[in-house]
């Protein structure tokens, strides 16, 4: 089943909110490709916090081995979508 663009956008914005809160920046500053570490001063602890919040909100398990890949919004969305079965 293909996901509607509207739903996808909504999910992306939700994730953006979470990331922005953890990184202490405005949601608008997080683009789909802006790099958490280089552009928003994310460190390993904040990266794990993002992962933890996503797990809690979407009731999924994301292995910490995925952390290095979670470097921008698009990557986070893809990993989450995979783990939450949004792509099935």
């Amino acid at each position: 089943m293909e996901m509607s663009t509207a739903v996808q956008q909504e999910q992306l914005d939700e994730i953006r909110e979470i990331v922005a809160e953890v990184l202490e920046v405005e949601p608008e500053e997080i683009t789909e490709t802006s790099n958490f570490a280089n552009d928003h001063e994310a460190d390993s602890l904040r990266a794990i916090e993002i992962l933890a919040r996503l797990e809690k909100k979407y009731k999924v398990e994301i292995p910490q081995s995925d952390l290095p890949k979670m470097e921008n919004l698009t990557a986070v969305y893809q990993i989450l979508a995979e783990r939450a079965g949004w792509l099935d």
């Binding site: 602890l45 904040r46 794990i48 916090e49 933890a52 919040r53 797990e55 809690k56 009731k59």
Partner: peptide, 11 residues
């Protein structure tokens, strides 16, 4: 109180 006891905030 969380669904699982380890669901604490790392930060």
């Amino acid at each position: 109180t969380q669904d699982r006891p380890y669901l604490v905030n790392p930060l």
